[in-house]
Design a protein around this nucleic acid. Sequence first.
RNA 1: GGGCCUGUAGCUCAUUCGGUUAGAGCACUCGGUUGAUAACCGAGAGGUGAGUGGUUCGAUUCCACUCAGGCCCA
Length: 914
Amino acid sequence: MLYKDTVILPRTAFPMRANLVQKEADILKNWADTGLYNLIQENRANAPEYIFHDGPPYANEHAHLGTAFNRVLKDMVIRYKILAGYKVHFIPGWDCHGMPIEHAVIKKKGAKSFSTKNQLRQECKKYAEESVDIQRQEFKRLGTFADWDNPYITMSKEYEAKVLEVFKIMVSKGYIYRAKRPVHWCTKCRTALAEAELDYKDFTSPSVYVKFKILSMPDTYILIWTTTPWTLPANVACAINSGFKYNFVKTEKETLIMADSLLPTVVEKLKIKDYKVEKTVLGKELGGIEYKHPFLDRTGKIILSSFVTSESGTGCVHIAPGHGYEDYLASITYNLPILSPVDEKGCFTEEVPELQGKNIFDADKDIIEILTNNGTLMYKEDFQHSYPHCWRCKTPLIFRATPQWFLNMEHNNLRTRCVEEIEKVKWMPEWSKKRIANNIMQRPDWCLSRQRSWGIPIPALYCKACGEAILTTEIIEKAIGLVKINGTDIWFDENTKIDAVCPKCGNKEFKKEEDIFDVWIDSSSSYYAVVKEKLKFPANLYCEAVDQHRCWFQHSLILSMVTEEQSCFKAVLTHGLILDKEGKKMSKSQGNVVQPMEVIKKYGADIVRLYLSGLDYTCDIMFSTDGLETATTAYRKIRNTFKFLLGNLYDYKKALSYEKLWEVDKLMLHKLAVLIENVTKAYEEFEFYKVYHLIHNYCVMELSQFYFDTLKDRLYTHGKSSISRQSAQTVLSETLSALARLIAPILPFTSEEVWGYFNTGSIHLEKLPVVKEEWKNEKLANEYELISEIRDEVLLALEQARANKIIGSGLEATVIIDSKDEKVLSLLRDKMALLPSIFIVSEVIVDRVENMVTFKKLDIKVSLCEYNKCERCWIREKEVGKNNEHPTLCVKCSKVIKEEDYEKEIEKKEPVEG
RNA sequence: GGGCCUGUAGCUCAUUCGGUUAGAGCACUCGGUUGAUAACCGAGAGGUGAGUGGUUCGAUUCCACUCAGGCCCA
């Protein structure tokens, strides 16, 4: 008789090997075919809303690993919120304007191939559109959930018009002003350059030491050092560090002021032999002192600035706010004039009559001559240093102050209101509040204008008669009307005319502003163009990387405070950046860049997602292949857990009521309840790595190592329809149902695959598992806490017996246990009948015998069980061999065979050959 | 140079107010099983808690500095 065939082994088509790459593609197709996104929206039509607003990634070719991580993180939030019963309408976005795209297009096609702005803009648009499509495919492949067919695109005319509306409100409320600011300028291309367009190369500049006469002190000079003599005509101040010590150095002729720490190098260079330090003062004591300009008829004053270093020079820095960024910042603090007597070709203007028309680099030697003649030049040499050049024409660049549009951070107490509003927002992690508050407090006024082509034009006009810059809500209104229909290209079309009257001279002819907006205006207006327009203002959550504290988070907050007088987000979740496995930044030059799609192609999205979910993203994330391998192992464990569950539920009919369940099964429902509660709590806090560890540990420790192992005998050998087997199946079913849903936000593909073998419909239409009150059983849990400790000791004893060749399999063992602890002893006696299945041995006897090994709680003796092995369930039992009908079976098995009427089934089966 | 963050086993994470021998899982080694089988079970080994100093009866935990790394600003 083939008793083996009466054993009910797991049966499922759910494959052990995932073959994720193929499987995920199938599931994606299925989601697309069934229109899952819309099904979910319908399903949650009347549910409370959760507004999660997507920060638009930059539409620049393939998605980076950091972007991929950001998408996955957002997706886990979205999928969790949907699971938790919310309606989440997630509109993805793309940031499409800006310098990097313009840069890439010019690089690809060459600057000469575009004769008009709009030709260049068309090419940029094409580039951005292609990038959006590439990234959309990649984001879909990651299994991320969104309204991919209806994204917001910052270069769409609707969006552009909305940005202009935001600007109109800024103007109408009086936040916008126009002022000069130094920018990197190419004198050959006659254009401003962005940071990314700078090409640093070695360059030789004249290095000069110049003395400025202090007005209030006879024969006393402050000594400065500069490598750009041509900026001296724009000098308005001299900066020193308030914390440094400054010496008054008396030489034969005069007294020179310089930093104490730089004295030795300076006197050596200037070949000053006889000198004496007359006195030493702290920098802050010199603040406000006036000096005479070395060759122009005006004065400047000494100011205090923290950027002055003691690395080179004299510790006294010549300040020309029109020709340096730090100088410019200092000019704001000290309210200094911003002189920039240089035209767009790099020649001096009439503001410097002596040098008018002269190229500034050529003028260096003229200025040196003037300084030499009037005796203010102390020393001169050539100085080689790394200097920015134009990326296109390789000309050395200059800083030149040009008029720009600004947002005034102090208007209507904007800065203070932002800082106060920050307090009302929930920042996760908490330190991010401090970070953004610092940023807002320290930031200068926002320079809104860029001298570029690919962006939204600033709708200002210049009077052709008097040159007056005109920016009014009426003009913006007209621009919005045009843009809504035509997009912003219309602004750059020379045929487009805006009707207006110059308020200064009454003229009606205008030149349109050529500058565009800083791209951060585009993306940071999304609260207005998307949240307010299509969702519900304000958003519940923004979630981006840590660098966005200075960018999107900050700028969105500022704009929202201007237009809505409140924050556009209630909570902000920040994550770290993705670094390589050594914690180094990924960069092409280092060769340590990981392409997300290559990883997906190799491992599948679910494994990548599982890996990412397990990382603590509140700090920087080190991405390693080792980690992916670990995640693969963890994935297999989770997958096999599902396979075991499915395999033992193929014949499951219906749940047993709680009272009828076996004790161990009740225990497992308690543990499942605790798991559900803990996982839900972790999800609520967006602590996905806790979710991962909780679920993985549950699969490994509670299920695989304990429950499943002890359950095998019951599932396989008890009667098909026995209460004991049904009891186990009831709990297995609850476990599968809960586990699949709990992991669904992390493993959207695998959970969907599992659900297909278990239930109907998509798992992503389901809701979080609910803990039934009756499942909670602290008393049982406490008892089993102790039993678990006891089990560990028994397993240790079995291992020793195995090492001593007393037993092989655990089922060969008879375990005799005793305890000196009354509590333990009474528990053992109480649970006597259950112990063999819990220890997975054939026999357990509570007794005291000789040669017991003492453990912490128990004394244990393991011996080879003297009974015969049941052919069917492999348990050794004293009745085996005594039953005439089934001489090789134990009592339990012969009873099962009889009651369940397996006889016919067995006879029907063909005998197996060999 | 400034602001913010990070550093615990090879990997991913724990360690509640500072308190017994710093814990899990994976990976590794050894063993068992062959009825979850490219699976499953058990055991073992693995740590100067980045470093130095301080506060304390006691520090991985609190403080200072240093080192390594990240973001932003200069």
